[in-house]
Nucleic acid binder design. Structure first.
Lengths: 95, 95
DNA sequence: TAGATTTAGACAATCTTTGACAAGAACTAA
DNA sequence: TTAGTTCTTGTCAAAGATTGTCTAAATCTA
């Protein structure tokens, strides 16, 4: 499940309007709409607020957010998987 | 081996001056110096040129470069490893 | 159809990245 | 040491990317 989909489905499950979520996030509906459509990435602060507003486990949301940031960096690259494995190795050794 | 270290050691092995590498990359010595010290990240185009100038396997350099881009995104995060694993999973399924 | 909700486009403001320059520091050889 | 060369550092403006907001159009709902 992709971040944008999760946000949208959670909002719908809770029967919230964009307008309501927007006010909890301190922004307007257009931005929330874009985030749910994947046109905009939420900032980290917005992730924090969204977790609360939509009652999603914060670490789950943050993990998805980080993961998509990484994905954007390497998508379409032949070496994507290898590069990520290398990062993983580095993270593990310095942990 | 980190990207910056590789670039520096390769240059030294080949007995090239910063000035010489700089001219092959179409930039000045200051930038090459910073890249070798890790103060600046090379652009993708610079990676391509550096591989040629320093006679480094292009895919090796590119992989390191991508890997460090990813690393910058997640370093210091508690969820770094988990997030990357998630990206890996995604890349594998859509490959 | 009217009213509400959602989406799309455009825009300026802000933040980040980049390349370039100049001056200083470190090194080398006589 | 000094002169000449190489490397490093700091600063800055230009270019690029991201962000929030506004407006208007599209879609939905009763």
């Amino acid at each position: 499940m992709i971040l944008s989909e999760l946000l949208k489905s959670k909002r719908e499950t809770k029967n919230l309007l964009l307008r309501e979520v927007a006010s909890m996030i301190d922004t307007d509906t257009a931005l929330i709409s874009k985030i749910e459509k994947g046109d905009r990435k939420p900032t980290r602060e917005q992730i924090d607020k969204l977790a609360i507003a939509l009652d999603i486990e914060h670490s789950k949301l943050l993990k998805l957010w980080l993961s998509e940031k990484v994905y954007e960096d390497v998508k379409g690259e032949d070496l994507a998987i290898e590069a990520i494995k290398l990062t993983l190795k580095r993270l593990k050794t310095e942990k």
